[in-house]
Amino acid sequence: MTEGHVGVDGIRPPRQTAGMSKRRKAQLRRWAIYVATLVVIAVVVLSADWAKLQSVFLDPQIFRDLFPEIITIAAKNTVILAIFAFSGGLVLGLALALMRLSSVKPYRWAALAYIEFFRGIPALLTLILVGFVLPIALQVRIKQILPFLGDYGTPAVGLAIVAAAYLAETIRGGIEAVPKGQMEAARSLGMTNSQALRSIIIPQAFRVMIPPLTNEFVLLVKDTSLVFVLGVSASSQDLAFFSRAAVQDTLSGTPFIAAALIYLAITLPLTAVSRQLEKRSGDYTSGRKKRAAVAAAEANALEPGGIEPGNFGQAGMPGGNFR
């Protein structure tokens, strides 16, 4: 029992020392890497033409001229697009995850086919598919289906379709990480499979998923740079397109630097918040992991691990091997 605790909590027992020589060797190697890195940096710094670099990449006048449009148009579009695409991707991804966990084979296959397809082709092609192929082939125009999204509609749907493929696997992993006993306890209280999923399983799954979800969002923020293929108007430019256009206008690299800084200003706080949330729910997680470890240590006890995909309950939703 005690060993289970230690192992799962990640505090590994001290490794048997293989003598000082091994540690010493590792130390030497580390120093060698430091020195080599310093040499490389020194060479670059000494040989670079700083005056030229600054005039090409950090021209203060050009930098100032980018504002306020780089914020009010470009960054705004990027953020809104990412939020729309993420929300859509989350809903679609949850549906796909539940299909992947379903007992109904065709659901599982369909979801798997979707996931493999849209993860397998470049996001750029998916955008082209949604923007140009769908309207011609099937007369489907996102702008007519989702008019309230305005100009964001088509690119947001395209990105959401791609995001859903990645998010589905993240969500499935989260659901599978919830111990099987949770579903059993919920069902034993008379909850239906979907009630149990909604109020017991999914809330727990999402806590485990905060870091990977943040990661997906950051990827999505960067993927907004692909939407230019769908055509861009003055008001719908995203950060990447805006900076590229500015580079062509000014013949300076400064807008690229500005765009990079703004991307970072969007993504860094997100990852910081995610780390914070993770720390706060750490109490909860470690408690659960501890209990899982106790369960694992009990001989022949039920596996605390996930829901077995083969075992799902009747309504085609993840459950136990019961109805």
Partner: peptide, 12 residues
């Protein structure tokens, strides 16, 4: 009512 060896309380 059912009571489990591992309690299975809802931790959230």
């Amino acid at each position: 009512g059912m009571v489990f060896q591992q309690f299975n309380l809802f931790p959230h």
